[in-house]
């Protein structure tokens, strides 16, 4: 089945069996191995991607469901060599240890900050509650999300200043 969708801002056509899982298509066919598979049953969040701006689990999605959608994976966040502010904050603030949950955590964070630019710590915890991390104990991840929120807010203010 031919499927047309937008992947990381690029029009993409794939010809795949419609019942293959999206995580397998991303990793095996498109070599986008940033998206991880942890549990394969929707309980760990490692395979989170954004579909039409909303976080979804690519292990619970079948290829046919991609048709016409706008998909962003962790690879689509950085611009050239420049990391996304959320990625930068994760690196700077020790939110990454083994790194396996990180792409999913980053996607959940981007989803949160798109909806809520100034989340409280409890809102952050709620937003990443579907993402399991077995290394950091979450504290540093929550710290990093707070820093990312501030950085994005400052960047926005700076851009608004430039416009004037």
């Amino acid at each position: 089945m031919k499927i047309f969708f937008v992947l990381n801002d690029t029009h993409t056509i794939i010809d795949v069996d419609p019942d293959r899982r999206v995580v397998d298509i991303l990793r095996e066919d498109l070599q986008l191995t940033g998206t991880k598979e942890g549990c394969g049953s929707g309980e760990c969040g490692a395979c989170s991607i954004l579909v039409d701006g909303e976080s979804r689990l690519s292990c619970l999605m079948l290829a046919a469901q991609l048709e016409g959608k706008r998909v962003i994976t962790v690879e689509g966040l950085s611009v050239g060599e420049n990391m996304h502010p959320v990625q930068e904050a994760f690196v700077e603030h020790g939110a990454v240890q083994c790194g396996f949950c990180t792409p999913g955590m980053v996607m959940a964070t981007v989803d949160l900050l798109n909806r809520n630019a100034e989340p409280t710590r409890s809102e952050i915890r709620e937003a990443i509650s579907g993402n399991l991390c077995r290394c950091t104990g979450y504290q540093k991840i929550v710290d990093a999300v707070e820093v990312a929120a501030k950085a994005m807010k400052n960047e926005e203010l700076r851009m608004m200043g430039k416009d004037r």
């Binding site: 929707g42 989170s48 909303e54 509650s129």
Partner: peptide, 9 residues
């Protein structure tokens, strides 16, 4: 129910 991405799906 579930988690945020589960509730989205």
């Amino acid at each position: 129910l579930g988690s945020p991405p589960i509730r989205n799906m």
